[in-house]
Write a protein that binds this DNA or RNA. Sequence first.
DNA 1: CAAAGGGGCTTACGCCGTAAGTAGAGCACT
DNA 2: AGTGCTCTACTTACGGCGTAAGCCCCTTTG
Lengths: 221, 221
Amino acid sequence: MTRRTTPQPNRETLTRQRVLQAAVELANAGGLGALSMRKLGEAVGVEAMSLYNHVANKEDLLDGMVDLVFGEVALPAPGDDWRQAMRQRAISMRLVLSRHRWAIGLMESRSTPGPATLRHHDAVLGCLRRGGFSLTLTAHAVSVLDSYIYGFALQEKALPFDSPQETAELAESITSGFGDGEYPYLTEIATAHVMRPGYAYGDEFEFGLDLVLDGLQKAAG
Amino acid sequence: MTRRTTPQPNRETLTRQRVLQAAVELANAGGLGALSMRKLGEAVGVEAMSLYNHVANKEDLLDGMVDLVFGEVALPAPGDDWRQAMRQRAISMRLVLSRHRWAIGLMESRSTPGPATLRHHDAVLGCLRRGGFSLTLTAHAVSVLDSYIYGFALQEKALPFDSPQETAELAESITSGFGDGEYPYLTEIATAHVMRPGYAYGDEFEFGLDLVLDGLQKAAG
DNA sequence: CAAAGGGGCTTACGCCGTAAGTAGAGCACT
DNA sequence: AGTGCTCTACTTACGGCGTAAGCCCCTTTG
């Protein structure tokens, strides 16, 4: 046994990828508030300061996390009909954003997009251009589609409940707090619509999505 | 001079309103990051801990700020045509959200709405119901409209520039960073569309808004 | 086998939100 | 007038944050 030690067999070398993935897992589990450099270091078995060998600073870490999330979104297949492709893209994006609820709040202010983000946007633009959209209409379409998707994800995130049952409980607690006449229409929709069995806000997504796609199809002529 | 001191004539008593307004001003000036209890105390001429006489904690402070912002949005007038009223409401909301860019990032996770927020939502629901919308269609309409408005505001906030000139500069710096073939459609839209004189992303808002309103009108039959 | 470089660790600084305790002024009683 | 309650503001302190600066030792290379 002249060999000193094996090259740390029990601790595989840290990489940017491993750091980013651990950060995403931390954020998934406890929200962005649970993600600190110290806790992230602990999660990957390293002191906080050692993380700075792999990320420039926390901004850079967040940028990398956002790009990782974008990488999970299914790219529109080049051969597909634009409408079909955009529909699938939107649904995939919403799925990804609901898997990583912290991400939507992070896309504000992240102004240095990573490669997966750029690839995603390029694929979306290409799908529309090849589908016959003019430059101007392509810009309109991307704006309205992304606004709708992000905005829906934002609202969905703001809801502090997941199951229909929790929804009903919250709606009841809100309406019972006021006199009947104070917010009549809120009371009406809470009692007669939201509290119906089987209600789930997420089901609203496809209604708006198809509404937007219809409008774009008409505009494309 | 038997009287000890006058009852502090030069310092008007602090109120929740004054605290909230100062907090909004701080956030307007320097973003949410510039808003700390210490700085807010300094702004109103008081130590940080004294603020807790008027707000329960920072969460409560943020809740109050959001409600203050909602109070700035013009309520739909009861007599108006639903489409006209919803259009004006959307434009007013976007204007308010661009005056307070920090607010959109805050509406995530604020789950205890204040009176102005409730009044706003009740007025919107009422406008649609009186316009003949069924309960289900009203829920659809609110979802798609709010998603679009918030999502647009979110994207607008993410843009790190305000003037058309800054936009062009950024677009050029992005496209020049890659080989021509890497992101062809991004390059195309950046050079041939975004960099045109007079381009401003904000102009996209009304296209999507009218698209959504058209779709709702059709759905309302 | 020595030199060099790099990944990891320790320490420290100035922020943050806020719990806990204190002081003084205004008011309502006797 | 005295007594005590309440309300506002201040002070101090704690644990956590991002990260700058410096050191240490292991690995690679000549």
